[in-house]
Design a binder for these strands. Structure first.
Lengths: 253, 253
DNA sequence: ACCATCAATATTGCATTCAATTTTTGATTC
DNA sequence: GAATCAAAAATTGAATGCAATATTGATGGT
């Protein structure tokens, strides 16, 4: 057994600072832990449905269980983990249904963002997005999927930012995090045949944005996300078929 | 020194049943406390910007600080409370800007709900909503504001439920809770002159729903919420003017 | 061999304790 | 009498302790 010794302030400080490159004004261990644990999970360090080892993570982060458990409750409310009474926390496994729902909500949020962006976006911001659009087109022509994907995400992000709605931005970010795990978990890539279609959709997005046609952009963005949804669900079921992992949340013991 | 008041299971169960999001058989003190504290705050038992007395609430709920503090972190992530480092938790005071943002997000979620509802709603559900609509019209004719308001909320709830998207439903509920505080805090009532307009909007909502015109319903619902937004912001600024309370979040000490 | 049973062990949920702040109080000075 | 400041008290953030609950592993019966 370990002999717990009262820790003097100096050593506590040392433990806290381990692994931290930024001396940010993060005052609370809770906030720090929350961000670190969320990243840890979103980046896929724990497999889908995998148990979250409290004690181990405490040692890893150099903290006690209290702030870690607080972070777990928050992540559970965000939908990233499941909390099983007396049986610990597990990384939430998304079913196909979950994924469809999540993409539809993302679609709704982007549709809203597009609508609001048309009300608030500046010419300068549109020019920015146009630049990104042509950069993305370049990646498309060169068949550079990772580059395309990165800029694509950036364009959507810029539209949400142009909505001038911090609440929407935060909500969008939270949902994006829940979906992002999937991308890390495997080489999530749009089917080739859909790629050209997506590129054309982006043309119409840019066009509606230029004309500041809110209703129209709203519809286009929702449908665009529906296409992404189809690709994601397809990807998930293929991945499940390959590994034999269940895709439904119905856990009958 | 401490007079802990043990709570019998029956009473806690009763309080829990007020909760919306987690209708499961809550075993954990954390989940129980979360629901209770959320209701306590949403119902306006603590004034806007007011300090949340940890110790007092612990005694009130008959629990220790650990589960209460866990609940506070979750409520902070939901946007209901602010966590000030070393200075405790406070009920989040909504600025006019916050309120505008919240109503726009609600508008986006309802617009999405309307779109999805048109894909999934059954004839039976439409008939249900029609019935509610005419019931609401009755309240309108009798100038029964509370009755109107209650059924109005119910109609919107039914549309969100008809979307068949549990994620959307939960998110909608969470945002509704953040706004609901305002309603409790004062006699939030739509201006008379806008009442007729709102009633007409509901006619078009029902019409679009009957025709299952998703794009159209989506637009109508967003605009409908924009009207509500205007009323809410107006109400907030009037209330602020009356009490002399600040409406902005900029807290310069 | 296979499966049930039960003790040993580990983990969880919450309470309690402790150090570090912040807030309040009360004396003191101008 | 108002302003200032130090000591006391209260409050907060986090660590640790402990009972209750799961999980594991050994044992014995079929």
């Amino acid at each position: 057994m370990k002999t717990m010794i009262p820790i003097d302030p100096a050593s506590t400080q040392a433990v806290t600072s381990l692994g931290r490159e930024q001396p940010r004004d993060e005052l609370s261990l809770h906030g720090e832990t929350l961000a670190r644990l969320r990243d840890y999970i979103v980046e896929g360090n724990i497999p889908d449905g995998g148990r979250i080892p409290e004690r181990q993570l405490c040692e890893m982060f150099g903290i006690s269980r209290t702030p870690l458990r607080e972070a777990l409750k928050v992540l559970a409310s965000e939908g990233l983990v499941d909390l099983l009474p007396n049986r610990g926390a597990r990384v939430r496994q998304l079913s196909e249904q979950d994924l469809r729902e999540l993409f539809d909500v993302m679609g709704g949020l982007e549709a809203l963002a597009g609508r609001l962006a048309c009300e608030n976006i500046t010419d300068h911001e549109i020019a920015d997005i146009e630049r990104l659009h042509y950069e993305m087109y370049g990646y498309y022509l060169h068949r550079d999927m990772p580059g395309y994907f990165r800029v694509n995400q950036l364009i959507h992000q810029k539209i949400v930012e142009a909505s001038r709605n911090a609440t929407l931005l935060a909500t969008y970010g939270s949902f994006a995090g829940r979906i992002r795990r999937i991308r890390y978990s495997a080489n999530f890539a749009r089917k080739r045949e859909r790629w050209g279609e997506a590129m054309r959709e982006h043309e119409t997005i840019l066009d509606a944005l230029r004309r500041r046609a809110g209703d129209e952009l709203s519809d286009i963005l929702f449908r665009h996300l529906r296409q992404k949804r189809a690709a994601a669900v397809e990807h998930l079921s293929e991945g499940a078929a390959a590994t034999g992992a269940p895709t439904s949340t119905s856990s009958t013991p």
